[in-house]
Design a protein around this nucleic acid. Sequence first.
DNA 1: TCCATTTCTTAGCTTTTGTTAACGAATCCG
DNA 2: CGGATTCGTTAACAAAAGCTAAGAAATGGA
Lengths: 200, 200
Amino acid sequence: MHPLRTYIQRFVSLTDAEWAPLAAGLVSRQLRRKEDFVTQGRLAPELAMVVSGACRLLYTRPDGEERTTYFFFDNHLMGSYQSCLTGQPSQFSIQALAPTELLTFPYALLRQLFDQHPVYERFGRQLAEYLLLGTDARLAELLLLSPEQRYQALLHSHKTKILERIPQQYIASYLGITPVSLSRIRARLQADDEAALSGT
Amino acid sequence: MHPLRTYIQRFVSLTDAEWAPLAAGLVSRQLRRKEDFVTQGRLAPELAMVVSGACRLLYTRPDGEERTTYFFFDNHLMGSYQSCLTGQPSQFSIQALAPTELLTFPYALLRQLFDQHPVYERFGRQLAEYLLLGTDARLAELLLLSPEQRYQALLHSHKTKILERIPQQYIASYLGITPVSLSRIRARLQADDEAALSGT
DNA sequence: TCCATTTCTTAGCTTTTGTTAACGAATCCG
DNA sequence: CGGATTCGTTAACAAAAGCTAAGAAATGGA
């Protein structure tokens, strides 16, 4: 089964006839390490599924500093929702962390499918709802937990791919802190662990 | 025009026949100050439009501390998306800040309308997309700006209702800081303003 | 493999925030 | 109207985070 079709079918069932027009619009693309799929300040009218590799979503601030806010791995769908929906330039970039293989398609094609096939409209609704729950949870975590608690939450979550494969400076950014601060938190936790061991 | 119908028609057009079944399911309800519309830990299968008054969305942490993360005013739609979609207890409460008048309806009714009228499915998609853009922007603000910058962004935004009508401790929570810290930030900015005035 | 680049840690110092507490002002509601 | 509650500010101290810099470790790419 095609990975994008599998992704969509986590939400709705597609007949071959419904799948065909989307399949016909897919274009394969390779990214080198550090190459952009989406570039901040430019239109980003395409979505993509990551077939292999990994990408990060990053904002470049007016002072030139970068902040990484999200990661994408195999079988993730990515793109600038904001640019696709509003037609405005994207406010962030999406950049490959390693050589990455993509399957891309224009958002305009999806919009056409919304009109032509109710099943795509339903998929679109459920996808947006699913993404909304994820973003809400992330927002709550930022507002409710301390940086140290956020790191611990990440440690005990099922997002092990982030911890295993991503440079720590980007994880720090994702947690809303500096790399130096994350390094200190890690040292603190490790000291606590060792104290707990010898104490027991 | 009915305020809920107006709200929906910001996204899609409704015929009288399409509007009727939703209108028939609406129930008016009054909340006293501090009364819950949604209670953390309980199912929240209803949505509501605020007709008049104001509410806040709050999480109560395991240690008993409260964190306010959102506000709702006239003509806002509110509810626990998370509880409605998953059927699980809500992870937050929604509480009236002042006497508030609501129009409520079961999410199950909306789900029925998704099946019966494509126009509602489209509304559902566009609503979720719109909410997602808002949450994404909020998340970016938290990760990109300092507390002081976030307060200034709020000052210069069009969310004047928040600043005018909401106790400062809740605004602090919304910004991800303590009330004491917000008070200091305000004092700092005021001192800067005065220095700028006398210096010019 | 090997060199250049990137990445992580640690340290010292500054700034900001959190915490607790106290006081006065504002607000609410009977 | 008036007492009780809630709210905002300020202060003093402790804890944490930011910033800069430097050296060691890991990684990437030719």
